[in-house]
Amino acid sequence: MKTKNGMILSRYYTIADFEKEEAFLREQQRKGFQLKKFVLPCFYVFEACDPEDMVYRLDFAEVKKENKDSYIQIFTDCGWEYLFDVNGWSYFRKLADEADEDNEIFSDMESKIDLLGRVTKRRLVPLAFIFLCCILPQLVLQFTGMSSEHSETATFSTFFFWFFAAMFLVYSALFIEMGVGLNRLKRKYSKG
């Protein structure tokens, strides 16, 4: 969507897609649109600029509030511009350097794999918890309720059974997508 001096694009990236998101943002700036802000749930607000090759990088560092300033300072010292935080992810950018290693915020395999570990622990595990402790028990509960002798209870349960069945499918699809994605990244990083 075009705006007065820029555009708004809607994209949805899961936790395993941060590299695709980085590439998407770089591509927009090459076309002359620089990221200004992100609006939940999935809107990227751009403003028009001169086309540049700007590298975007996302970090998930679990920084405590009192350490945030010093965290950003290390990146600034190394030539990165800090943009903002979304859902625990910090967005950084810098003009692309000829040397590839200067365009990265992680310089060794271990720290890249550590990043995947933090994302799994803070994002994937809580989702699994909701799945196992809410969606799955509810699905079973409503299934038994469907055969209730009270017709009202049965109707009620049938409705919620299908609701939780839909949630079950959405969650399963998300898990597979994210699990496979994170695993693929891990294998890629391990190869160096």
Binding site: A61, I74, D77, C78, E101, I105, F106, S107, S111
Partner: peptide
């Protein structure tokens, strides 16, 4: 050896 900021902060 140039240590990147994310790696530095994490370590």
């Amino acid at each position: 050896i140039v240590i990147s900021p994310g790696t530095m902060y994490g370590t």
